[in-house]
Design a binder for these strands. Structure first.
Length: 637
RNA sequence: GCCCGGGUAGCUCAGGGGUAGAGCAGCCGCCUUGUAAGCGGCCGGUCGGGGGUUCGAAUCCCUUCCCGGGCUCCA
């Protein structure tokens, strides 16, 4: 007789024809009730599936990632059923679970708008109330081809499937080609909500037909769903576009153009502080800053190869007689031109050129989004010219800068995606040996620092391997921030050369790297990361002096002068508002310190300090406050 | 670029063929305030731009610009 082994090591004897649900029942009633599917020898199976072959057995509930996926997948099926019932003749395509939810791409007979979502959701609840058993059925390829004879999408999918391995899932009149597994019945769906409608090309290819995609989210319990929706609210409240407007940081104007952010005084101060900081770190690590303007002769990009590969992302040329100019889409060719303007000995290397350069890229209009995707962007870019032997050390140096900066901003949860060559494809240039050495150097440098990294084969740039830093913000969202790339190709193309110890000309290796990526995008990330409440050193406005009554204005101004003289960014709120309203308004502006001054403070030479986010105040000698702020700014806490 | 939704006062939004609205902000007064909205008044809009339908258009249609969600996480 067969037996299954449970996760706790127990063995259970299995009767012939016994199903997963029976085993779950025998383990525990409660577990059986929470069960979504089961796992046999590492494979997910339906609760209806027989387990009389025995093996390692595990009950899967909605608490596990796998259970959630199944739950969401089943919810997607219920949604598909609801849509087919409400829009007869619609054609299903694919409907997978995704992070936090699911979607289904459907060629809808008619049209679904956001206003229809409640109706569909209601029908889904009805389907759930019907508690239809969800049954798996093995079908032959011929049979399933017939079933879907009027659905070209499914036919396309089926054509890639092996006969004998094709399964269908049925619930009531509804069926869907599906690998499964699924919850045992539609009554076992959890809490769900439909979220939004979007267009999606069949197979993601813009040459294909546009389908209607409906997104939804699903959770085991109502409580979890609520918590998730609250999380979404939090994300929305931190949206950098909203905060950017509320805090007067930046704006956009159709009079200027799409994707070209305009920075108000506070936003510019923020940019300035961000860039200043990186400049300071880079300088400390031996980088030199250069400046190469906004335009370049198109011939430069012909030579570098960018025109060929990058043309669609560049602004059209400005023509001046025989000469065609392009807005700079990247700095490397300019920095190599700078390199070439002088003769170099191996003794000069490594040469590290850094630039905060505003570049212009013609992003597709639909790709633009707030500060995270813009057409005018400022990179904190640098190019290190070095010998091959210096690659590892320079990589480590860049790594140090990146780590220091990310650490300061509180991005302590990150890993490196190490993009390597894929031997199979022919897209990578340069010789094998160099690649092998470069990849080895990067891997060793990463190992030495102990940063977790995940190799990604086939993701390398055409000119060399790269390391991208993936950091999580306070809301757990992942952003690609810094990048370090090794380039064997471009220096040769642009004729970069140094004289080696042997007196011969050699081509340097080029390291491309960016710490915060672009100022605009990183600012967007920072705004959301901090929710607009920037640390003191980064706050455009660090303190506001609030006089209790107009007769305290003189003292307020003296406080301002004292602090401003120390380099603290401080204003006096001399508006005609009541004191409470001034506190409210400045608190909403997320000013780190409000300094309330009235009779007592003026007399004692103190300020009453109200810290951002706190209600308690503290009367502090002005001198002490000044020293405290300077200390905070100095340590960038 | 493509699909869907949207654009009304500086901001947030209501109004969807029949005289353009509210709150906040702004301005002017009064109040002189002790820790998140003091009171009153006033100003403010070619309803994104252009074209059309209509006796009449913010509202319906076309077009254009801009914004938002999304465009393989594969049955």
């Amino acid at each position: 007789m067969a037996s299954v082994k449970l996760p706790d090591g127990r063995q259970l004897e299995i009767e012939p024809a016994e199903r997963a649900r029976d085993v779950a029942e025998r383990i525990g009633k409660r577990l059986a009730r929470d069960a979504i599917v089961a796992k046999l020898d590492g494979n997910l199976i339906d609760l209806d599936a027989p387990v009389d072959g025995g093996g390692e057995f595990e009950v899967v509930t909605g608490d596990s990632a796998e259970g959630l996926e199944v739950l969401r997948h089943s919810t997607a099926h219920a949604m598909a059923q609801a849509i087919l019932e409400l829009y007869p003749g619609s054609k299903l395509t694919i409907g997978p679970p995704i992070e936090d939810g699911f979607f289904y791409d459907i060629e809808v007979a008619g049209r679904i708008t956001d206003d229809d979502l409640p109706r569909i959701e209601e029908r889904m609840r009805e389907i759930s109330a019907r508690d239809l058993p969800i049954e798996r059925e093995a079908v032959s390829k011929a049979e399933v081809l017939r079933l879907y004879e009027d659905n070209p999408y499914k036919l396309e999918i089926i054509s890639d499937l092996e006969d004998g391995e094709i399964t269908l899932y049925r619930q009531g009149d509804f069926f869907d080609l599906c690998r499964g597994p699924h919850v045992p019945s539609t009554g076992r769906l959890g809490a769900f909500k439909l979220q939004n409608i979007a267009g999606a090309y069949w197979r993601g290819d813009e040459k294909n037909k546009m389908l209607t995609r409906v997104y939804g989210t699903a959770w085991p319990t109502e409580k979890q769903l609520k918590a998730y929706l609250r999380h979404l609210e939090e994300v929305k409240a931190r949206d950098h576009r909203k905060i950017g407007k509320d805090l007067d940081l930046f704006t956009f104007s159709p009079d200027i153009g799409a994707g070209i952010p305009l920075f108000l005084p506070k936003g510019e101060m923020l940019r300035h502080l961000m860039e200043d900081y990186v400049r300071e770190v880079q300088t400390r690590h031996g980088y030199d800053h250069v400046w190469t303007g906004h335009l370049a002769n198109e011939q430069l990009y012909v030579k570098s190869g960018h025109i060929e590969h990058y043309r669609d992302d560049m602004y059209p040329a400005m023509v001046d007689g025989e000469t065609r100019y392009r807005l700079k889409p990247m700095n490397c060719p300019s920095h190599m031109t700078l390199f070439n303007s002088q003769a170099h000995s191996y003794r000069d290397l490594p040469l590290r050129y850094a630039e905060f350069a505003t570049l212009y890229r013609y992003e597709k209009s639909g790709q633009l989004s707030g500060l995270t995707r813009v057409r005018s962007l400022t990179q904190d870019d640098a190019h290190v010219f070095c010998t091959e032997a210096q690659v590892q050390e320079e990589f480590s140096r860049a790594l140090k800068i990146v780590r220091e900066v990310l650490d300061t901003y509180g991005f302590d949860d990150y890993y490196v995606r190490l993009s390597l060559r894929d031997q199979e494809t022919g897209k990578y240039v340069a010789d094998d040996e160099k690649w092998t050495r470069a990849e080895g150097a990067l891997t060793e440098a990463l190992d030495a620092t102990g940063i977790p990294y995940r190799p990604a084969a086939g993701e390398a740039a055409f000119y060399g391997p790269k390391a991208d830093f993936m950091a999580k913000d306070v809301l757990g969202r992942e952003w690609q921030l810094s990048t370090i790339q090794v380039d064997f190709i471009q220096p040769a193309r642009l004729g970069c050369e140094y004289v080696g110890e042997d007196g011969q000309g050699h081509t340097p290796v080029l390291l491309h790297r960016a710490v915060t990526g672009t100022t605009e995008r990183f600012m967007g990330v920072l705004i959301e990361h901090y929710g607009g409440a920037f640390p003191v050193w980064l706050s455009p406005l660090q303190a506001v002096v609030v006089p209790v009554a107009d007769r305290h204005l003189d003292y307020a101004r003296r406080v301002q002068e004292t602090l401003a003289a120390a380099g603290i960014r401080v204003e006096v709120d001399d508006s005609q508002n009541s004191m409470q309203k001034k506190i409210r308004e400045n608190a909403r502006q997320k000013v780190p310190y409000l300094l309330i001054v009235g009779d007592a403070e003026a007399e004692a030479g103190t300020v009453n300090v109200r810290r951002r986010g706190e209600r308690e105040q503290e009367e502090t000698p002005l001198e002490d406050f000044r020293a405290r702020v300077l200390e905070e700014v100095g340590s960038r806490r």
